[in-house]
């Protein structure tokens, strides 16, 4: 089979509502998006293919220029991805965290099991690769879990920065270590374990004035991209051996997540709420 035939097969997933089920179950979202990006970026080539499929045919019927067609397709891709929700994967992520927890218990760690829920649309890893070749911005994505995630380094960084502000640099060094000494507290990546309706939701940002000198140059530039939907529960573990580091971190957590964990929190994105905090000794 010619490669472009394979690429066109990919489109059927985007087009066909019945195949949505198999999109959820069998497709790796990361490779799906990078393959789709080829068709998106070379739309005029694929439209001229003789073996039309119904998805591309729509775009050849519409009477507008190629730029506009691409914009329409970009929106379509974003909408299809937002329907991507597999409860099974979320269960797997939960089981994975459970498993990790029981292993850490055997290693005699004290574990804090944290659950946080997104209150607003959330953005994390805007400059990473998921969908970057289509939307020019990304979302932190774990291709093996097939789920978006919040990197542990990000969680640790934000908690450290807050503790530095409140308790001073020395105290932060004591807990999180420095170039001389390793830290005494560990974090795991946060995976989504429950979602109300969707995991992803399309969104748009439309700068009018960025890099513009005056009113005469102002121009809206809509940028469609993906975000994590509100009401998605993320779960992660914090574990340590030294008992005294637990308290400052536990006290910090609720405040830090309310203030935002991720990008664009100054305009109300990426705000969380703490829904579960369980300490296991």
């Amino acid at each position: 089979m010619q490669i472009n035939q394979y690429l066109i097969k990919i489109l059927e997933f985007l087009d066909n509502e019945e195949n949505k089920v198999s999109l959820n179950k069998n497709i790796n979202l990361f490779s799906f998006l990078s393959t789709t990006s080829i068709i998106f970026n070379m739309l005029n080539v694929f439209m001229s293919e003789n073996s039309y499929n119904s998805f591309l045919e729509k775009y050849s019927i519409i009477d507008c220029d190629i730029k506009h067609k691409k914009a329409l397709m970009k929106r379509k891709i974003a909408e299809s991805i937002s329907k991507y929700l597999d409860k099974e994967l979320l269960k797997q992520a939960n089981a994975y965290t459970d498993n990790l927890k029981s292993m850490l218990k055997k290693l005699h760690y004290t574990i804090i099991d944290v659950k946080i829920i997104t209150r607003t649309k959330m953005l994390v890893g805007v400059s990473t690769s998921l969908g970057k070749l289509v939307f020019e911005s990304g979302i932190s994505f774990d291709p093996y879990m097939n789920l978006p995630y919040i990197p542990a380094s990000e969680i640790k960084g934000i908690i450290r920065s807050y503790i530095e502000d409140k308790l001073g640099e020395q105290e932060a060094k004591e807990i999180f270590g420095d170039t001389e000494r390793e830290g005494s507290i560990n974090f795991t990546d946060a995976y989504p374990v429950r979602a109300e309706n969707f995991v992803f939701v399309p969104d748009v940002i439309t700068p009018h004035y960025s890099k513009k000198k005056s009113e005469a140059d102002a121009e809206p530039t809509p940028i469609i991209h993906l975000t994590i939907a509100p009401k998605v529960t993320f779960r992660f573990l914090i574990y340590y051996k030294r008992e005294d580091v637990g308290k400052p971190v536990c006290d910090t957590l609720p405040i830090v997540v309310i203030k935002g964990l991720g990008a664009r929190s100054s305009v109300g994105y990426s705000l969380f709420e703490l829904t579960g905090l369980e300490v296991v000794r």
Partner: peptide, 22 residues
């Protein structure tokens, strides 16, 4: 880095499309 994470072929055609060669 993008070629490394997303693959050569997807990234190449991204560049191709951004190059304004239409």
């Amino acid at each position: 880095e993008e070629i490394y994470t997303s693959g050569f072929v997807p990234t190449f055609f991204y560049i191709f499309s951004k190059a304004g060669l239409e």
